[in-house]
Each structure stands twice: as C-alpha cells, then as structure tokens.
C-alpha cells in the first residue's frame, strides 16, 4: 500500500543519523583502524611501523598465547557442559503443570544475572577463600573429612571460574528455556502420552525438537561469551594481572589486554583481537550451517 502523503526522502536518514554518526566514529572507524594496527608495531599511541604479518606470526609462535587459548577453551567447554544442562533441568522442573510459585522461582534463579562479573568475582573470591570461605566451611560441616584449607583458588582455577559463571548465567539460560518450554504444544505432549510414550520418550521426541532453535542459540551464545572471558579471572586474580597461579587463569582477552595496555603493544593486541574475531565469525557461520541442515532434516 502506498501512502497518500509521502514523507520527504531524507526522513529515514534523519532517524538514522545519531546511530550512524556514533557508529561510524566509535565502532566503524576503530574497526578499520584495528585492521591496520594488526599489521603495525606500536609502542604507546605515538610510534608505529608497518611490519606485515609479523604480529600474527609472533602470536602464532607465542607460548603464552597458546596457554591462554587452552584455558579459554577449557572454560568455554566447561560452561557449555554445565550451564546449559543445569538451566534445562531447572526449566523442566519449573515447567511442571500444577506447580505454584513459578514466577518467584524464576526470579530467584535469574537474580544473579543482574550482578556484574566484577562484583561476582569479588564475592566468589571470598566464598572460595581457604579457611574463612563459606564453601570450605559448609563442606567441612557436611563431610568431616573435608579439608577446610582446600585450595580452590590456588589449584582448582577452572572449577572456581566455572562455578562463578554458572551462578551468574544459569538464570539467563533458564529464562529462555522456560519461555521455549511454555510454547511446546500441550496437545502434542498429551497425544504422545496417549500413544504410550513415556516421559523420557516425550522429552526426546516432542519437547527437544520443539525447543531446539532456542537451545541452539543459547549454545552459540554460551560458547562465544565463554571465548571472551575476561572480567571474572581478571578481578579474581587481580594481584597477578589476571594470570592466576601458573597462568592457569590467563585467557585470550586477558592476554590481549595485557599486551595492549600493560606492555603497550597495541598492534600485537589487535592481531590477537582479529584472531578471536575470525574464530567467532567462523563459529557463527558453522552454527548457521548446522542449524540449517537440521531444519531440512526435521
């Protein structure tokens, strides 16, 4: 349908102007600059030399970078394997027909998500502290043989980080999964039950395919956010600039930050940034292809 009194052609541009102006200045331009920077050697903001692929080659041969990659992959894999199943389990419990207080439970589970990563890591640093921390206290009270000096933060770095992340993000995943579960058609489930399908069968063949699109998105979001882990370990191991004991907490973004802002090598940092970005783009494309082929088979 055509409008009777057409608007002047510049109207949409007027509405877009603030976004486009700010985007170009503060995102588009730095994005292009980072591409240039990745091929330059810099010491502080003033001196720079074009060096070709030297930064990328340097990163490739840098053992610290690979330590960071290893830790980051452990973390991303870990939160994927813990966060999503825990959230799905809780969402299934909350979705039981006849359950009262669903909104209240959802509120409780969601509330840590409001707390920023900086504040979560300060809190978890004390929860997991050796003698005085709540976790060791409680475990010692439950199991007398538990050592109250159990070194969570010194030796179980990834476990500690994953625990903090699960507390922080379960509610977010839960909110999406619960919304998806509430959209699964009741009739379909009832029909399956009448046909003699048990609860496990109904979950696997009716519920799971229905919530699949949401689950797919959450898996992608969890992995991509896991690969960008920074604030949790950076604050938790603030005294070692985010390295942690034996660099067990060093992540890719922490290393990017260290090389850029502690060593002042912005070019090297940009090279790391582009390697991360290309990995994320690759994952997103792979994810799109996988979820598409799934749609066809369904």
């Amino acid at each position: 349908m055509k409008s009777y009194r057409p608007h002047p052609a510049w109207v949409p541009w007027l509405f877009l102007a603030p976004f486009l102006g700010l985007f170009t200045t503060f995102i588009g331009w730095p994005l292009l600059r980072s591409l240039v920077l990745a091929f330059e050697q810099t010491y502080g903001p003033r001196t720079r030399v074009f060096v070709g692929f030297l930064n990328f080659r340097g990163v490739w041969q840098d053992p610290w970078f690979w330590t960071a990659v290893g830790n980051t992959l452990w973390f991303a894999g870990g939160i994927l394997l813990v966060q999503i199943p825990v959230a799905l389990g809780l969402a299934l419990l909350l979705n039981r027909p006849g359950l009262r207080g669903r909104a209240l439970f959802r509120l409780v589970f969601f509330s840590p998500y409001v707390v920023g990563a900086v504040f979560v890591s300060t809190l978890f640093a004390l929860l997991l502290e050796k003698r005085i921390g709540l976790v060791n206290h409680a475990l010692h009270a439950l199991f007398l043989r538990w050592d109250p000096d159990f070194p969570w933060l010194d030796q179980y770095v990834m476990t500690s980080l994953i625990a903090a992340s699960v507390w922080l993000s379960t509610g977010f995943n839960l909110a999406y999964l619960l919304a998806a579960l509430q959209n699964v058609s009741r009739e379909l489930l009832d029909a399956a039950a009448i046909d003699g399908a048990g609860p496990w069968h109904r979950f696997w063949h009716v519920t799971l395919p229905e919530i699949r699109p949401v689950l797919n998105i959450l898996i992608l979001l969890t992995v991509t956010s896991g690969l960008q882990l920074f604030e949790l370990p950076f604050i938790l191991y603030n005294d070692t600039a985010g390295n942690g004991p034996n660099s067990q907490a060093l992540t890719v973004v922490t290393y990017l930050y260290q090389t850029g802002f502690i060593s002042g090598n912005l070019g090297y940092a940009s090279a790391i940034g582009w390697i991360l970005t290309l990995t994320l783009v690759g994952l997103a494309l792979l994810h799109r292809r996988l979820s598409r082929s799934e749609d066809y088979s369904a």
Partner: peptide, 19 residues
C-alpha cells in the same frame, strides 16, 4: 554484521581513537 564484533577487538583501536 556488527552484531558479531566482539568488544575486545575494539579496545586497542578504540583507546587510540579516544586519545
């Protein structure tokens, strides 16, 4: 496309830009 730009990529050039 911009949805996928990770914030860490822009730290270094963003800092230069603001400078």
């Amino acid at each position: 496309g911009a949805l996928i730009i990770p914030a860490p990529l822009l730290i270094a050039p963003g800092f230069q830009n603001l400078w």
